[in-house]
């Protein structure tokens, strides 16, 4: 019940600050652009587009979300409530994944992509990874510029190898790189059991790190230095 309310609150928050409106416009623009490109290029470009934008929104917006929650004292309220850091993080992950999934499926449907279930799963898992990374960075920063700066290395690590992998640059262990497993799923390819295990372990590690960071942030909230 608490979790449902948290998610509903986050969805409301995201709707109020224009996330749904923004991504509705972006989806229309993306679909228009996709329909304009030649059919032979479409597959890879749609995969790249879905992988690089909707799931990455957690990374892009998390800094602003956390900073705004800090300045509105939302976090102070949450810190003294029965809500746990796990629930706080999970709620963010689920609410952001929801928009990512809606956008990704809309684009995939318009582009005539197959294997929508695997694509959807890939989008959700990628979104979770980027949201967790965004959260880990966001709790440490003091300003938006700082956040944007700190996310750059994560974006390079996240997108660089995956894009290379998509275009056929492959090394022996490259296929087990979490971002590459995700982009494979977004492309509609079902990964093997080992790859799913790797992905789950990776997400669990990130979740643990995010949980530690949020707990540390909550413990620091409030009070004054005299």
């Amino acid at each position: 019940m608490r979790m449902e309310k948290l998610i509903a609150g986050d969805v409301k928050f995201q709707r109020k600050y224009g996330f749904y409106f923004l991504y509705a416009i972006l989806t229309i623009i993306y679909i228009t652009a996709i329909l304009a490109i030649p059919q032979s290029w479409r597959g890879k470009i749609v995969t790249l587009l879905i992988f690089s934008d909707p799931p990455a929104m957690g990374m892009f917006f998390m800094g602003a979300i956390v900073l705004l929650e800090k300045s509105q004292r939302v976090l102070c309220t949450l810190a003294v409530s029965p809500i746990t850091p796990q629930e706080y993080i999970a709620s963010k992950m689920i609410s952001v994944s929801l928009i990512s999934l809606l956008v990704a499926v809309s684009i995939a449907l318009a582009a005539g992509k197959d294997h929508l279930f695997i694509l959807g799963m890939g989008t959700v898992l990628t979104s979770m990874i980027f949201t967790l990374l965004g959260m880990i960075v966001a709790v440490k920063i003091e300003s938006l510029n700082q956040f944007i700066l700190w996310t750059v290395p994560f974006e390079i690590i996240g997108f660089g190898p995956a894009v290379l992998y998509l275009f056929g640059v492959d090394f022996p262990v490259f296929q087990y790189y979490p971002a590459n497993i995700c982009i494979n799923m977004v492309a509609g390819r079902l990964p093997g059991g080992l790859k799913i295990v790797i992905l789950c372990i990776f997400i669990a590690i990130l979740f643990g790190l995010a949980q530690k960071s949020v707990l540390r942030m909550w413990n620091r909230l409030g009070g004054a230095k005299l």
Binding site: Y17, L26, I29, F60, F61, A64, L67, L144
Partner: peptide
């Protein structure tokens, strides 16, 4: 009107 909307508008205006 705030940072979060600012980020959303940034994304849109960059288009």
């Amino acid at each position: 009107s705030n940072k979060l909307e600012g980020m959303a508008v940034t994304k849109l205006t960059s288009l």
